[in-house]
Design a protein around this nucleic acid. Structure first.
Lengths: 242, 242
DNA sequence: CAATCTAATAATCACTTGATAACTTAGCTC
DNA sequence: GAGCTAAGTTATCAAGTGATTATTAGATTG
């Protein structure tokens, strides 16, 4: 709670020719909005969500209050950024591809992983995802849950099917299985972290890397999954502090 | 440049019994300093370096100006946090262990990687390292350079020696070699990211995982390194946007 | 080309936030 | 236990920062 000082109408009077008077460019509402969102995505990916609205406006070449004509507050703009990057870029066909049993599993997975990689392996996605994770934001958890429910479970189901093992309804996914499926994306994600967080050089031919990973995955995973999970049900401890 | 208003001495007069008057606990200078540093490490690991000094002070149970009796400004405190986490925790023996040819290479590497993992796989290190990377801070780059020069190069040198290949003086480390050495730590680091950034469960037995990774590394790396680097000298492109 | 609509700006508010200066007092010394 | 030293607090500054209000002006319409 903070006391609201009674706002006395300030009676603005332009001091007749003083400020540099920026040339005012008038855009269609939808067009300007899109421009703001696009700029905000880049801006927040660079500076995190604590980046300042004034600085964002400056980079967009507009005044800061204009942002508030398009979004009620800063948080609404941030929400929109998430929507645009994590939700709108989600390809619903991924689930279809993975489950399409007219194709060999290897081909399905390579197709999915390659397309998914194109989706997330860019400056904006990687950094925004990290920022949202570091702040413990709900969007981040939601995305990870979604990924697990929609993608990983399907991948596991298909591998089980391929190897004549029980369905997920009969036997829920083990930690080992989830772990193995995670590992593929993890290594791809980490390429992005190295590139856009640590500024390190990264390998060139992503498609080839993904094909390698999927190959290794399909060679090793089924056996590991079928095994009675030597450490899968072992207690999970915390390495150190907390 | 910002104009400095001439500070008129405000002649503070305590309003004789008004504030809740916190019980003042007086510590030795060194003791208080250590307490502040320790609290700051945790605090900045949670909130990033944009976390506010007032909030930090509140969590320490002290007043905010007291911080400025120990550090000239916020940045000095941040520098100290880095010093404490990234520099002071560096174990100079690591380099010795790796190069100690009285021991088998496998044992040396397992010993190093396990100890190094204990060093970095904790809430504070992982998150502070990410925050510093996201902000593009010099400490981050410096650490990575240091790691490459002091550790990776030695690991590569030892593997070369083990396999009767030319020394690093005769033939500088290839991208492939660096890539392979990186991969081991990368997968360990990523366990920390999953745990302390994304809040996901992680495998329990780190020592076993590391032993596996080192084993895999020593089985695969020498051959891959010796190969004429099929993609090592290939141009490195950027996946998408920038 | 004047009327009208609304995108865009200028001015400013209320609160935040790193930092400083003046004042207070815990606790040690003799 | 008076006096002193320095650890700690109170009050406050000035620039920063999200948000609001009143005004200006670019484009479209008839």
């Amino acid at each position: 709670m903070q006391k609201q000082r009674a706002r006395t109408a300030p009676a603005v009077k332009t001091p007749a020719g003083k400020a540099p008077a920026r040339k005012r460019r008038r855009l269609q509402r939808a067009e300007r909005e899109q421009m703001i969102v696009k700029g905000a995505i880049r801006f927040f990916a660079e500076h995190g969500f604590k980046g300042q609205t004034r600085e964002l406006a400056r980079r967009l070449g507009i005044t800061q209050p204009l942002l508030y004509r398009y979004f009620p507050n800063k948080n609404a703009l941030i929400e929109r950024v998430y929507e645009e990057v994590f939700v709108a870029r989600w390809n619903p066909e991924w689930e279809t591809w993975i489950a399409d049993r007219t194709q060999p599993l290897h081909a399905r997975l390579v197709r999915f992983y390659q397309d998914y990689t194109r989706n997330i392996l860019n400056y904006e996605w990687i950094r925004l995802f990290l920022f949202s994770g570091l702040e413990g934001l709900e969007i981040n958890r939601r995305y990870l849950r979604f990924m697990r429910d929609r993608i990983w479970s399907k991948v596991i189901a298909e591998i089980r099917f391929e190897n004549g093992r029980p369905s997920l309804e009969e036997e829920p996914a083990s930690e080992t299985e989830i772990e193995l499926v995670w590992a593929v994306i993890a290594s791809i994600f980490y390429i992005g972290v190295r590139r856009w967080v640590f500024g390190l050089p990264v390998p060139e031919d992503l498609d080839a890397i993904i094909e390698d990973k999927v190959k290794g995955f399909l060679e090793g995973a089924p056996a590991a999954m079928a095994a009675p999970a030597k450490s899968a049900n072992a207690p999970r401890v915390r390495p150190r502090d907390l």
